[in-house]
Computed example of a mutant assay.
Amino acid sequence: MAISAGVINDIEGKLNTHIKNVSPVGGGDINQACHLQTALGNFFIKINSLHKFPGMFKSEERGLAIIRKTNTTAVPEVVLQGDTGDESYLILQWIEAGRCDIISSKKLGRQLASMHYYTAAQFGFDADNYMGSLHQCNKQHNSWAQLFIEERLQPMVKMAVDKRELTPTDMYRFDELYKRLPDLFTEEPPALLHGDLWRGNYLVDTNGKPYLIDPAVSYGNREFDIAMTTLFGGFDRAFYEAYNQEFPLQPGWQQRLKLWNLYPLLVHVNLFGGVYAKQVRVSLSAFI
């Protein structure tokens, strides 16, 4: 699908440049994504519905800025965020993707660990954002257990039951988990989280430099980011070894991966249904 004339005109006017060529690239199900060639250079642009996803790109822009300010790991530079008509767009630095090797994996592990040292007074964030295409409430709490239960699991479980992807029995089993959850881990100070760190949300450029992309930032337990890296693969042993050398994880972290991945799995239940509901039930059984 071609970029609309309204978006093109808005970009050319705000950047005072001419768009030479637009070619589609992979950008997921939510956004239309393209390689933008202009008189100023090459950029990456993604476009979606302002009505369906209000504030999504503003949240992403802010998340990238917060990560950038830590000076720990690279993120794409934001060139322009704009809205025109019912369309919203985000223009980012174009990054020529290279191959992830052991050296870049170690860099990413160390850099993520360094980012996780950045903390806040409470768990959560001072603004809501998105997890995929779903609204993510970041109401602040004094403990990770509170936030994870009240702002992560409970809303997703209710939505899944309302959609009949999960049953009232599943909801009851989650209620049992909520009672036990504070005793399943050791609380740490809030860590700045990427929040959606699966294999599609980092890339390595042709010089081996890692970048984090598409964040859903909040302050939480750093094991959450680590857990998401295991959900669909794409991170090798060198990444985890480097992370643990920089900022060792609490004993037993491997056994808690399925616990924290209940949230992204529930998001997938609500977006795609099917097999993800079975995965949720299997993971839940390990803790109740």
Rank of each mutant, 00 (worst) to 15 (best):
K209M: 09
L259I: 04
D183W: 14
E187A: 00
V275W: 15
F232S: 03
M228R: 02
L197M: 05
D183P: 12
G233S: 10
V282W: 14
P215E: 13
T186N: 13
G208M: 02
L181R: 02
L284Y: 06
S285G: 06
Y219N: 09
K179S: 13
P264T: 11
Q279E: 14
L271F: 05
A227T: 03
G200S: 14
A216G: 04
K258C: 15
G252I: 06
H194F: 02
F272C: 05
Y202Q: 02
L266R: 04
Y211H: 08
N207L: 13
A191T: 10
D196E: 11
R237P: 05
R281S: 09
L192F: 01
K209C: 07
Y263D: 06
V280P: 08
W260A: 08
P248H: 08
G274S: 05
E188A: 12
V269Y: 04
V267W: 04
Y211I: 01
P248G: 10
N244M: 03
L266W: 12
L197R: 04
K258G: 15
L284G: 07
N244D: 05
D183Q: 15
E223T: 01
W253A: 09
R281I: 10
V269M: 01
F232N: 01
T229D: 10
L284M: 06
L249S: 08
S285E: 09
R281Y: 13
A191G: 11
Y243F: 03
N201T: 09
N201W: 05
P189V: 06
A227W: 02
P190Y: 01
V267G: 08
S285V: 07
T186W: 06
N207K: 11
N261H: 06
R199S: 15
A227N: 03
L193G: 11
P248R: 05
A277G: 14
